[in-house]
């Protein structure tokens, strides 16, 4: 498996650290309800198909990436810098 880092180019999976679903970037307002926070922290979809994950280019450029991949075919479709998505 290889990931196309927007900075470093196509790199071996060993260089990356997986850190869960990219929904972590959509942090709720501090005053949001307990239900919204519970959902943000704990509830994940376990879908078969295209998903967005957070990966850290740990032994490369150190950037956080949002990686779009298909959990059925294992294809890595896209990787972009997470800081562009951060609100």
């Amino acid at each position: 498996m290889r990931i196309e880092c927007p900075l470093c180019g196509s790199r071996d999976r060993r260089e990356f650290y997986y850190a869960g679903h990219a929904s972590a970037l959509e942090r709720p307002d501090p005053a949001a309800s307990a239900e919204i926070w519970d959902n943000y922290l704990h509830i994940r979809e376990n879908l078969a198909g295209v998903t967005n994950d957070l990966w850290h280019h740990e032994t490369g450029c150190g950037a956080w990436l949002v990686v779009t991949r298909d959990t059925v075919s294992h294809a890595v479709l896209l990787a972009r810098l997470a800081k562009r998505d951060k609100k």
Partner: peptide, 9 residues
């Protein structure tokens, strides 16, 4: 480039 040398950053 930044990468690994064996397991090292």
């Amino acid at each position: 480039q930044r990468s690994m040398i064996m397991h090292m950053q």
